[in-house]
Design a protein around this nucleic acid. Sequence first.
DNA 1: CTTAATTGCTTTAGGATTAAAATATCTATA
DNA 2: TATAGATATTTTAATCCTAAAGCAATTAAG
Lengths: 156, 156
Amino acid sequence: MTTASKDRLRLWLRLLGLTRHVDGHLRDKLRVEFKTTLPRFDVMAALSRHPEGLKMSQLSGVLRVSNGNVTGIADRLAEEGLVERVPVPGDRRAMILRLTAAGNAEFAEQASAHEGWINDMLHGISAADARQMAAQLIAVAQAAENKEKIDDPSHA
Amino acid sequence: MTTASKDRLRLWLRLLGLTRHVDGHLRDKLRVEFKTTLPRFDVMAALSRHPEGLKMSQLSGVLRVSNGNVTGIADRLAEEGLVERVPVPGDRRAMILRLTAAGNAEFAEQASAHEGWINDMLHGISAADARQMAAQLIAVAQAAENKEKIDDPSHA
DNA sequence: CTTAATTGCTTTAGGATTAAAATATCTATA
DNA sequence: TATAGATATTTTAATCCTAAAGCAATTAAG
């Protein structure tokens, strides 16, 4: 392999290392301080951005996870009264999932703590550097996605 | 929250997005092309770097996953003859896990393909940019780890 | 030497994840 | 209006993952 390839591999390993580290820390915090998990947080975050709720399929779409996955997480959140399933008028197959009042209140606390944890962990980065790196990562992600479309045009 | 905090949050979301995207792609490729998984690949990669093998506890240490996790993955790899458990002379509690000849051959193919997939996905980044970003990420990770030691000195 | 603490690994219980199969419903077409 | 195909969700089977408990063996303290 080329040296450029090795450089990219090393970049990937760094990216993965940092992400896993931060990710693991967030999971620990959510577990210890809120007795919840990152997937549950992700579901509630998505619903929070859509106060009217989301169909199960829309939810798995925005989270980019499988349908069955969301079913299980929604089941557990519903048991605790944090989300509720609402039938969709005119389509008896579909269900809208949305936060309950309790879910909204709970998520507001979690989201605030979440932002604080990340701010703490990434405190070594200035706001300007953070913006610059974020922009660079967007470019990388776009390049990767374009590459995929060229290799496999079926994804539209 | 401050705007700096929002900038760091956005950086984290970008980092997470890109990492999940690449990670998911790698898992797909490993499944389709090698009928294996990323955790199995990670275990074999660690063993490949230590031809003499690693004790189960060392392995879970370098991979930063739980002991029980490695037990299950090692079981399945051993069933397929890719790794083997060797007793440690002088300590009947411990076991060394190491790649078999078949495991070594299989991993060599996987590792080469793996580097190629990453090179393809990150092809939008020049070698120089990759090195620069990797260096930046190292600095971020170090800042995060120092922060943790200050907050919780128990980790030494 | 005996016992207490530690160490190394596996097991267990529960949640997360996927692909694929199963169900139920809807829609378009003949 | 049948019915064939598409769509929305759930279920199933397998792996992954963790924390905590359990077991066996080693080490340290007295």
